[in-house]
Nucleic acid binder design. Structure first.
Lengths: 130, 130
DNA sequence: CGGTATCCCTGGTGATACTG
DNA sequence: CAGTATCACCAGGGATACCG
């Protein structure tokens, strides 16, 4: 219950921490966009539909801090900033894609499992997808 | 050059959805415990330190709904319920482990990137570890 | 253009109590 | 033992306004 005692999950469980980051609302989408090719802030914002300026900034800062993304400022008259994946970032994309590929591939199986579950439970969760 | 772009944000982005699930606070830990071997509710609760009864239930229900975990009730005198990974669940563990392995392996690189970043920014984030 | 600062509200999570 | 139900909290994230 108290957080001081984090022996059970071997310290702070970096795996869970990393997956939380990767699994947050925007990180993956941003990374995927940057993998296609480097982009400026506004480009990124347009590419990732629905992200707020604040969240894009926060997401990019976190990625930069972890050494996954570089931030390059070009002191042009209207300042422009380019974001790009680092080598570390590109490497990380590999296992992420592997997992993503598995999910895509098995989406039908998951979907039918859900139908079965929802049918016999009568719940109308209906898969959020606004 | 786009290499087989998996998510294009077109539909509901199942990849992001799946990663959100996987990246949530408890799912991974529960799945890892179940991978070791099937467990009962209480065993699971003890194994995963710090999880509340409510969250364990919710996590297990979500996994069950997606066909990743089975729930078997034994009508013994004190009722006992056993949870186990399905084949689908076991398959999913493979790419998850791959990603997890990458993270563990590259933890030092990430850590040093953070030190560099925090040093030159003077920020005292100090890595949350609630 | 590329941010930072602020307000505010929702929903995810924990704590507690109750049931079969 | 294995849940369900209810409440209370506060961090995540959107909207908005301002800055270099």
């Amino acid at each position: 219950m108290k957080q001081g005692n984090i022996q059970e999950t071997s310290t702070c469980n970096p795996l869970t921490e990393a997956l939380s980051r990767i699994g947050d609302k925007w990180t993956i989408q941003v990374v995927m966009e940057l993998e296609a090719d480097p982009k400026r802030f506004s480009e990124l914002r347009r590419a990732v539909g629905g992200i707020s300026q604040k969240m894009l900034t926060l997401t990019l800062r976190a990625l930069e801090r972890d050494g996954l993304v570089t931030r390059t400022v070009y002191p042009t008259k209207p300042p422009s900033v380019e974001y790009a994946l680092t080598d570390l970032g590109k490497e990380m994309v590999v296992p992420v894609r592997a997992l993503g590929g598995w999910v895509i591939e098995n989406l039908p199986r998951i979907a039918s499992a859900r139908q079965r579950f929802d049918a016999e439970a009568g719940s109308a969760v209906s898969d959020g997808c606004r």
